[in-house]
Design a protein around this nucleic acid. Structure first.
Lengths: 133, 133
DNA sequence: CATAACCTTAAAGTGAACTTTAAGGTCAAG
DNA sequence: CTTGACCTTAAAGTTCACTTTAAGGTTATG
């Protein structure tokens, strides 16, 4: 079985060494074995765990939520709990999309009204921001 | 002409006194007049300026961007520049909506596949996160 | 005239997710 | 055997947009 130093794991996973140590302190990564000289030695599945963290982050999960998901996996916990976490995340994302879509609509409408010529005084963009939000 | 203490301005604008002083340090609000006892005295248009800041924040502008917009107004600058700032913001928002929509699609699909019953081992949610992002 | 409710400043704290720095110890190459 | 690239730790710094704290001075009310 292959094992890695933290630098090799960093290269293979794309996560900086310092970030890996940070994840260890934050209980996202388990404490790895050590060499006699106290170097961290990681098994191959550490790569997958880091990639799980990266992907979950891309999905907008916070480290707290990711820790929860990892703990459920480690304890082989209840699938219903994982579902709850993901469901909450989906709602959060849908809410964000709605807010951003409203802003997109008003902002693009406002931009159509502003030719970009002339002085600031009377600029439709500024007036739109000033008026309502 | 009416003038206000910082607390009155805070009540009228909905922005905390400390935040108003913070905006002054950050050059979003101009230094107001002072009473003999060194209290800040604000004119009525300070309310509108704070509301401009609030609304711009709701549109997702950062304080740096808001400062730029306010400086353009104060200097009665070029409308084209304000348009550029707003355009960049619109692109940023559209990009965010796209990313979130992709996540929404995959996450809701994954949730449909997961009944919520059984152990974590083999949970479609965990597998979906582990696999790709 | 005391007390509460304002106001002043500078500086430190918050949270999220790291990154950077300081001050070393270890290991492989030439 | 030395140079450089790795590794160790703890602690402080980063960004954003404030909030909180500390340590006072001022003004309105009873």
């Amino acid at each position: 079985m292959k094992t890695f130093n933290i630098g090799e794991l960093s290269d293979k996973s794309g996560v900086a060494s310092h970030a890996i140590r940070f994840y260890e302190r934050e209980n996202l990564m388990p404490e790895p074995a050590r060499t006699q000289s106290n170097y961290r030695r990681y098994p191959e599945d550490a790569i997958a765990r880091l990639q799980f963290i990266i992907h979950a982050k891309q999905w907008g999960f916070t480290l707290d939520e990711i820790r929860e998901l990892l703990m459920l996996q480690d304890a082989n916990g209840d699938r219903a709990e994982a579902r709850q976490i993901a469901k909450k995340q989906l709602e959060k994302i849908r809410h964000q999309i709605q807010s951003l879509s409203r802003i997109e609509a008003v902002l693009s409408e406002t931009l159509k009204e502003c030719s970009g010529e002339g002085p600031m005084d009377g600029c439709p963009i500024v007036e739109a921001i000033a008026q309502q939000g």
